[in-house]
């Protein structure tokens, strides 16, 4: 996979580059700010862009804006927004345009190398990766309607919201895929959601439910 990194902190940029190259991916460029992100994407044609939320010159949410801009010019571009803190509100902004191939993860997630690489692959393939912390924020905010779910169903819902498919959920929870499928069906019934089995649209439905 060809990856473009936009990260102003040299230590972190170097670390992510090391992780990707060690895992057999190619880092085509590392940018210190988002000023030339669109041009750089046109030049290097990466499969995925990893972009930090906070970038010079304002150090506020330059990266988030740049990611949204870049996707507007190239809707099929897979973008992983990478941050040292996550806010559910940013996630809803990122995901509302319904485009495919978006991820929003805490930088801490690089410690779980396999899961991080899985998330990268998922995003590059047009899937979704939502940080568990974002999901946790959304779930705590929506305590009441979720009280109808069993603890197991809530676990499944959280993993669904992160962007995982049924197979991955089954793996994480150490159950069969059929069991996951049944949980998902019950969750959708209890929350009055139209059943969506396709990964990305399902995530959007769940996020919309939680965020709205």
């Amino acid at each position: 996979m060809r990856v473009l990194i936009v990260e102003d902190n040299a230590v972190l940029a170097e670390g992510v580059k090391l992780l990707l190259t060690t895992s057999g991916h190619e880092v085509v460029a590392v940018l210190g700010d988002a000023g030339e992100l669109v041009e750089s994407v046109d030049l290097h044609r990466p499969d995925l862009v990893i972009v930090d939320v906070r970038l010079p010159p304002t150090y506020r949410e330059e990266g988030l804006r740049a990611a949204i801009r870049a996707r507007r010019s190239r809707p099929d571009l897979a973008v992983l927004v990478f941050s040292q803190y996550v806010e559910a509100i940013y996630a809803t902004e990122l995901f509302t345009d319904g485009a495919r191939g978006v991820g929003y993860l805490l930088k801490d997630r690089v410690a779980r190398v396999e899961e991080f690489l899985d998330a990268l692959n998922r995003v590059a393939d047009g899937g979704t990766a939502v940080d568990p912390e974002v999901v946790r924020q959304l779930l705590t905010r929506k305590e009441d309607p979720l009280s109808r779910l069993t603890p197991r169903e809530r676990e499944v819902l959280a993993l669904m919201a992160e962007g995982l498919g049924n197979g991955e959920i089954a793996q994480r929870l150490v159950v069969t895929e059929g069991a996951v499928h049944k949980h998902v069906g019950r969750i959708f019934t209890k929350l009055d959601l139209a059943a969506e089995d396709a990964g990305h649209r399902r995530v959007l439905a769940v996020l919309a439910h939680l965020g709205g």
Partner: peptide
């Protein structure tokens, strides 16, 4: 930032 790269290297 240091902690993130530390965790990544351990991973």
């Amino acid at each position: 930032a240091q902690l993130v790269t530390l965790a990544m290297r351990v991973g």
